[in-house]
Design a protein around this nucleic acid. Structure first.
Length: 178
DNA sequence: TTTAGGATGAACT
DNA sequence: GTTCATCCTAAAA
């Protein structure tokens, strides 16, 4: 699913305006994965990951950042896909307003916490169902396999070698080229 | 161009 | 007390 979600769209309603972004980078986290929040079992924080797919899992980290995941596995499984970078498609001005100090170019949304700030995603949207407004996931046709690059994940200290990060080749909004 | 450190709070040992 | 699915700035190379 992490690969399948590449190229798909997130449609966000902010102040009665429509903002659309394309997912260009993802990471997969599963239950038997030492780097996953669910590795040590279910807690209050990661509960959404154990629910049915199609819901948003948001967590707060480093004392100041939010990151957003899409729950993908079946209910009870504790797996999700982290959205690491998106490309603005529509409503770039709204996104720039949400990132006042750093509102230029690729810096608008080329990182997991940056895109949350850009789309105003915080704990209020934790557990949100992604077929409902104000945040909707629109699956597009899959990106061709040759256009998908697989690499180790970013910023983790466990399960370092697993190739569970995926991004769209040549897209400038990818957080870190490798 | 690359690296180092600070911000800041929740979860975990 | 330590770690953490990060970001930003400033300093060093």
């Amino acid at each position: 699913m992490a690969q399948r979600l590449l190229g798909s769209l997130l449609v966000r309603r902010i102040d009665d305006q429509e903002v659309i972004v394309k997912i260009v980078e993802t990471e997969a986290y599963h239950e038997l994965d030492a780097a996953s929040h669910t590795y040590h079992g279910k807690t209050a924080r990661n509960g959404v990951m154990y629910g049915p797919p199609g819901y948003l899992y948001v967590y707060f980290t480093y004392g100041m950042h939010y990151c957003a995941n899409i729950v993908c596995g079946p209910a009870g499984k504790g797996s999700a896909v982290l959205i690491r970078a998106v490309e603005p498609i529509k409503g770039r001005e709204i996104i720039a307003m949400n990132r006042p100090e750093n509102g230029q170019g690729i810096n608008l949304s080329n990182g997991p916490a940056k895109l949350c700030q850009a789309l105003r995603i915080d704990m209020q949207l934790n557990g949100h169902f992604l077929l409902d407004p104000p945040l909707i996931l629109e699956l597009t046709s899959p990106v061709a396999r040759e256009q998908i690059i697989a690499t180790p994940r970013v910023g983790i200290s466990k399960a370092k070698d697993d190739l569970l990060r995926f991004y769209i080749r040549d897209n400038i909004y990818v957080s870190k080229l490798t």
